[in-house]
Computed example of a mutant assay.
Amino acid sequence: MAQQRRELPTVEDTEALGRELSADLTAGDLVVLDGPLGAGKTALTRGIADGLGVQGRVSSPTFVIARQHRAGAAAGAVPMVHVDAYRLGGDLDELDALDLDTDLQHAVVVVEWGLGVVEHLADRHLRVRLSREPESDVRTAVWEWVE
């Protein structure tokens, strides 16, 4: 799949893109989110979670590092693990302690700040780069499957 790009004028647009991306995700998929603070990584994750049909409110897991969301009751719902790798600071021992490779067998794993840190966990991953225009709420997403 070729690289795709979309402008996201509102938070709702960012969440809608997450729901759209979730249609191609199944247990075992890794999603790596990259972008500066305020670029929309958590909003995109909320949309992915909604599309997957997971339970529970999705918020940034900054202080707990990883948050597990069980699959909802809807047919086809898939569990999701939401990780914030920012505080790991590239500490691969702490990353290994999260046991994400085991989670990947049963869930979609979405990692904020994961670029350059978690790609080795899967044979392929969906990389989403988010940016925000200066002095604006308009965000841009660029995404592609990387093998």
Rank of each mutant, 00 (worst) to 15 (best):
L37F: 15
R67M: 11
P61I: 05
L92A: 12
W145P: 09
R139E: 11
V142H: 02
W145C: 02
Q105R: 07
L30W: 02
D13P: 06
T14D: 05
L126M: 07
A75T: 11
L130D: 00
L126I: 03
D84V: 10
V138L: 13
L95M: 06
A85T: 05
V78H: 12
D34Q: 13
R139I: 08
E94H: 13
H125A: 03
G28W: 15
E119A: 01
L44C: 14
T102N: 13
S60Y: 04
A39T: 01
L126A: 04
T62G: 09
D103L: 08
W145Q: 03
A43C: 11
E144F: 04
P134V: 08
L95P: 02
R129E: 09
V78M: 03
G76A: 11
G40V: 11
G53W: 15
L88C: 08
D93I: 08
R70F: 12
L130G: 02
G53Q: 13
Q55P: 09
V81F: 08
Q68R: 08
R132T: 10
T10E: 11
V108M: 07
G116C: 00
V78R: 14
G18Y: 00
R124E: 15
E20R: 04
A122W: 07
V78F: 08
L130P: 00
D137L: 14
L115M: 13
D99A: 12
M1R: 15
A66T: 05
T62S: 15
E144Q: 12
A23W: 06
P134S: 11
D96G: 10
H82K: 12
P36H: 14
L44N: 09
G114W: 02
S59W: 06
A16D: 08
A16L: 15
V111G: 00
I48W: 08
D91T: 10
V111Y: 03
V64C: 10
L121W: 11
A107T: 13
H120V: 15
P79S: 10
V110S: 05
S22D: 15
L98K: 09
D103V: 05
V11M: 15
D13V: 02
M80P: 08
L44T: 01
V32N: 00
D99W: 07
